[in-house]
């Protein structure tokens, strides 16, 4: 964790003929396009954004926005260890990505001891679904969508029956995780996954906002306000009762 108050102060050198105040302001405008930025107090709730594509073993070209599991997993360990952090919000706007990386992130979030909440903002597609349901409480905004479809593989595939068995097992891992961490039952989830006609000629279903809640996949429709309320409620529940502490 970075303690913002204990950062080493850069020595300010005053040179004759130099106007440090003006140049600093000009520099700031040049670099940031603005002169000042709002300050925030230290937060007891941390935010984990799952953006773009969930990157697996292959590094995607730099123009892609990606979520890298090797960044997120140590951060999740740090969140678990840091006593100052009392809750976690997961923000999702992802198109999906690598199944194993996505499941690794989901399992890490699900095994945190601290209260967690997720918000599906624009889209939480494919492997975004297990990540969204891995938290204690999941929220979806009214306009957000989640595409549920069977897993796919691109690239070089060894053409043996075992490959397809492996894919079948991988599919089961996703289905099991989602059904264990949400209120949707396996039959309903599989029905959505293999539905025809919803995604033009593809198989699968695109569930929007309230539909995801009706299917039991997501807990409630809501945004930041609802998620923060829920998290603060959970954090308060975990705090030791002050009255009990006084009586000894």
């Amino acid at each position: 964790m970075t303690d913002l108050n204990n950062q080493p102060q850069q020595p300010q050198k005053e040179q004759p003929g130099d106007q440090p105040k003006k140049s600093e302001l000009v520099e700031k405008i040049q670099q940031l396009g603005q002169s000042n930025v709002a300050q925030a107090p230290d937060s007891n709730i941390h935010v984990l954004p799952i953006i773009g594509q969930v990157e697996g073993h292959m590094q995607l070209p730099p123009q892609n926005k990606t979520t890298k599991y090797e960044h997120l997993i140590p951060q999740l360990v740090a969140i678990e260890q840091n006593p100052k952090i009392e809750g976690l919000i997961v923000l999702l706007n992802t198109v999906g990505g690598d199944v194993e990386a996505g499941l690794a992130i989901s399992e890490m979030i699900a095994s945190l001891s601290k209260p967690t909440a997720s918000i599906v903002l624009g889209g939480g597609h494919s492997i975004g679904v297990p990540i969204a349901v891995s938290t204690n409480h999941s929220f979806i905004t009214e306009t957000a969508t989640m595409t549920i479809h069977p897993i796919r593989m691109t690239g070089l595939v060894i053409g043996v029956p075992q490959t397809f068995e492996y894919m079948d097992k991988m599919q089961d891992r996703v289905v099991n995780f989602v059904t264990q961490h949400s209120n949707i039952d396996e039959d309903k989830f599989k029905e959505l996954m293999f539905a025809k006609g919803n995604l033009t000629r593809d198989i699968g279903t695109n569930v929007v906002g309230q539909d995801a809640v009706d299917y039991g996949l997501i807990d409630a429709v809501g945004g930041v306000k609802e998620a923060m309320e829920k998290l603060n409620e959970e954090i308060d529940k975990r705090k030791p009762d002050e009255d009990e502490q006084v009586i000894q």
Binding site: T2, L4, Q31, G33, N36, V37, Q39, S43, Q75, I79
Partner: peptide, 19 residues
Amino acid sequence: VLSTDPSIYLHPDYQPGMQ
């Protein structure tokens, strides 16, 4: 910035473009 701390995102030293 790749931090989970929301206050870092508002800290002037961590704005994109800062050197």
